[in-house]
Design a protein around this nucleic acid. Structure first.
Lengths: 339, 339
DNA sequence: CTGAAAGCGCTTACAG
DNA sequence: CTGAAAGCGCTTACAG
């Protein structure tokens, strides 16, 4: 059974393919009557448009590329899975498909661009999660619109969608301070990603406003240069609370504290970030920040689609507000202002 | 700056586009000398092939569709993320891109096929994870090759790649029996998916061979008809060991047991399935089955690509061997043969 | 409202 | 080894 084309429909109805095209695409220039007839026959015959022909003519693919660095896959964490699922769903509503591509460590190092770009399969690109500067430099020169999702980088003029990390971290740290905590640690390697850094700055902003000075011993790295997690080196004495740059490491921290017979939250409060699965499977469940992925994604998709239409428009750094999810991992500090 | 085409290269070199096409595609019919000249100029000018034109002419998209039901995304579990990442990487090596699509609950109920099919964007489809029978019925009739990944269904003639669940469950249950366990529970809703059912059967096979009769009270459901997890109703008295249909529920079980002051593995052994993140973040770390995703994916991708070339070939139900990962959640049962 | 004609950028079968 | 010609299935600008 051959695929059926517009001209098959045209022949059967005794009209031209032009009219079929107009009818099917809801363009003006056909009577409502004819339009209905065409649409009916098309659906009865199971007509499916030949996208290659349309794309060739219109010079548009109706595909958006989604790039993810290999490390985020190996992580076995679902964060970017949720995100990409959401992206794909939003794209679909606007008539686009999502083509995913994993940038392997090797390709990232060698600056090899994704197939979907080299073969002109996409009209725009969303970069999901931070990658090497040099690679981003290469991808930046690409001749289709591009946006960064969930990170940004200095000296890049690329539009990006990020969670308002600084403000969220500031707010959640404020909450700890309101609960009488004065010794508060931060867990995260502050040079690893823009998110970790901004969350640190929000934490610091809160300390400044509370008149608490920053103690370098209280900043605990959680990963190495490759992004691999490392064992946590906790300070002694411990602070009475920790702000963690993500739920995963908050979960690790809680496990570590338990082994030291430190009770959470009675002896030590812990807060996380991302509202990931780690925040709910942990015991106690972790107070955290929900980054509002649906809103981030909706914005990102809207912007990339706009940029496909109007490539010269600039959106800059778009911040999306997060929301604190109160759970069971924080408590009022009773020890009091003994210092 | 206009996109550059084969004819641009041809003009600059004073040759025909036919020769350019042959040279770039490594087809015979051009001298090595000319081929080099063409390739050099193409790369200097940053030529990228126009896939639409190629696809239109060849009636081939060089894209494979990956369908995932919405529920697997909302799960916040990374299992299918790892899988789809791996699929995409394998496809890339064979010259294909992967177009993902999330089948929403709504579309699944209404039998709405993915955009990538309706718009002829893909040459073949991989269905990632079990979906409603009626939906699969609709997708089965599709006019491109299709395979099921990680599940199968009776009365469907669709080729599928599955882990050898029965055999893995059989083996891991045997290990418990060798450790002197005679009362062994199974956690999983055995009608929910083919995997859960087959793992149950492997567990049962092991019991049969050990002369242990099946006790219905020892089969504990873990999810409802929608696939949502439900609280575990543990039997009283408890068995001395549990085989869980996945690591996630094994993790839940361990948490539940801890609350009952049952120590794992001293008082009760627990094994899981999938070697997912839950098996390593759990305390103790869970003995589990690694399904060998790389091998499953490699096979799946090879088969779909073969089927694109030779649609009539049949591969049937392809089983991939899993591997037991021994960790800390099982122990020898000392209670002994008192019954 | 309707349609004939041109053309998007490739690949393939064929002729030289 | 090399290339002229046809054609894949659409859309668009234009004429009627």
């Amino acid at each position: 059974m051959r695929k059926i084309s517009m001209s098959d429909i045209a022949k059967e109805l005794g009209i031209s393919t032009v009219s079929v095209s107009k009818a099917l695409n809801d363009k003006e220039g056909v009577s409502d009557d004819l339009r209905d007839k065409v649409k009916n026959l098309a659906s009865r015959k199971g007509y499916r448009i030949n996208t290659s022909a349309r794309s060739l003519k219109m010079d548009k693919q109706f595909n958006v590329g989604i790039m993810i660095a290999e490390k985020y896959i190996l992580d076995k964490e679902a964060y970017y899975f949720t995100v990409s699922g959401e992206i794909i769903r939003n794209l679909d509503q606007l008539g686009y498909s999502g083509i995913m591509e994993i940038v392997t460590y090797d390709n990232e190092n060698r600056g090899i661009l994704p197939r979907f770009y080299n073969e002109n399969k996409v009209d725009g690109i969303i970069v999901l999660g931070q990658m090497k500067r040099d690679y981003l430099r290469a991808i930046e020169k690409v001749s289709v619109p591009i946006i960064f999702f969930d990170f940004y980088m200095k000296q890049f003029d690329v539009d990006c969608i990020v969670s308002d990390n600084l403000f969220s971290a500031y707010t959640i740290t404020n909450q700890l301070i309101e609960k009488n905590h004065r010794e508060i640690g931060y867990v995260g390697s502050i040079e690893a990603t823009s998110s970790i850094q901004d969350r640190f700055l929000g934490y610091y902003k809160s300390l400044i406003e509370a008149g608490i000075s920053l103690n370098p011993d209280m900043i605990i790295p959680d990963r190495d240069e490759l992004g691999q997690f490392i064992p946590l080196q906790l300070p002694n004495p411990l602070p009475t609370a920790f702000v963690c740059n993500c739920d995963r490491v908050a979960h690790t921290l809680i496990t570590t504290l338990k082994k030291l017979n430190v009770r959470v939250p009675e002896d030590c409060s812990v807060v996380g970030f991302d509202n990931s699965i780690f925040s709910t499977i942990s015991e106690p469940r972790i107070t955290t920040v929900d980054n509002n992925i649906p809103s981030m994604v909706e914005t990102a998709v809207k912007i990339i689609v706009k940029k496909i239409k109007y490539p010269e428009r600039i959106y800059g750094r778009v911040l999306i507000q997060g929301k604190i999810i109160d759970r069971d991992s924080t408590a009022f500090f009773e020890g009091g202002s003994s210092s």
